[in-house]
Nucleic acid binder design. Sequence first.
DNA 1: AACATGACGTATT
DNA 2: TAATACGCCATGT
Length: 120
Amino acid sequence: MAVSKTSAAAVPEAYPRIWAVVAAIPAGSVLGYGEVARRAGLARRARLVSKALNAAPAKLKLPWHRVLRSDGRIAFPAGSESFRRQARLLEREGVSVVNGRVRAPRDVAVADLDDWLWRR
DNA sequence: AACATGACGTATT
DNA sequence: TAATACGCCATGT
């Protein structure tokens, strides 16, 4: 079979790992793009995470809304459709979002504490 | 190869 | 906390 080796895989090797990490984020908790990248063994590739999420098959039903910027803010343009959808999905899980920024939750599991440490 | 762009991050002021 | 600047990585011109 004539398999073309010149072209890289349509789906980057790293995407599945990124998806797995995102899928593992428990409801009510959130993670930064950079953190997701690190957990997927892809340090310093936060931007790749956003790309992977954008390319993720809807079939996977990933909790993409649980991924925020390192400062706790939604990465989409304020007021945009995606921005509001994400805020709504988070609120739905009990995560308070004020002015596009996630506020500290009432109680966070100790294991996820680190993820809630946006310097403040 | 230079330059621009982006669902980003960190340091500095 | 906010605004700026610069760094990083991948992709497309």
